[in-house]
Nucleic acid binder design. Structure first.
Length: 189
DNA sequence: ACACGGATACTA
DNA sequence: AGTATCCGTGTC
């Protein structure tokens, strides 16, 4: 079960949570890195959030505690990792979009077959592949599992807000958060 | 620039 | 069943 202080991390609104997730080190079974890019999705007035059109997603929010992993298959190819945010001003999700690799580099390179370090976890689908995260973890207490840790930064990095990537609805919301100047992002911004 | 690929939620 | 849509990536 997830440590109480960590659980409280997800008991806030999605924007605050997504912003403060940048700089945290996410480790899973010896592989992982520092989160350098996230996006916030809200169940309130956000057409890009799954809950806006998917009853099953609304049911997911109702039936799981904050911090639960929300993992889904996008474009039939890529697993995307989100964490459920709940109990603050608004409920929603934080999408993990990119990591600066710090742990288990050989193993991640083996899974991704990627030559460059910069491209190893520079996208939401890339990092789930590198960490071997898939639909098995949808709905589970991911950060409470053996081998999973989320370490808060000693000194928080400078974080910038930009528009979210790859969506058509509510595309103008500046709800993507990136570590300023990081070469490990999924795109420029 | 384009193909790849499957779950979800619609219409009937 | 058939259709539209979708928080992407690698290779063309």
């Amino acid at each position: 079960m997830m440590p109480a202080p960590l659980r409280q991390f997800f008991e806030r609104d999605p924007l605050t949570c997504a912003r403060e997730m940048v700089g945290c080190e996410l480790v899973w079974n010896g592989c992982g890195g520092v989160v350098v890019e996230t996006e916030a999705y809200s169940v309130v007035n956000d057409e890009a959030c799954h809950t806006f059109r998917r009853p099953a997603s609304r049911e997911f929010v109702a039936r799981h505690p904050p911090g639960t992993a929300y993992v889904y298959l996008n474009y039939g190819i890529h697993w995307l990792l989100n964490f459920l945010v709940k109990g603050g001003g608004e409920d929603g999700f934080v999408l993990i979009r990119a990591l600066e690799p710090t742990r288990g580099l050989p193993e991640m390179h083996e899974r991704r077959k990627t030559p460059t370090l910069a491209g190893l976890c520079s996208g939401p689908g890339k990092l789930t592949r590198a960490l071997a995260i898939d639909g098995r973890f949808h709905g589970c207490d991911f950060l409470g599992r053996e081998g999973a840790t989320l370490q808060l930064p000693a000194t928080p990095p400078q974080v910038l807000a930009t528009p979210r990537i790859g969506i058509t609805k509510a595309a103008d919301f500046p709800w993507r958060f990136i570590q300023a100047g990081s070469p490990f992002l999924s795109a420029r911004g």
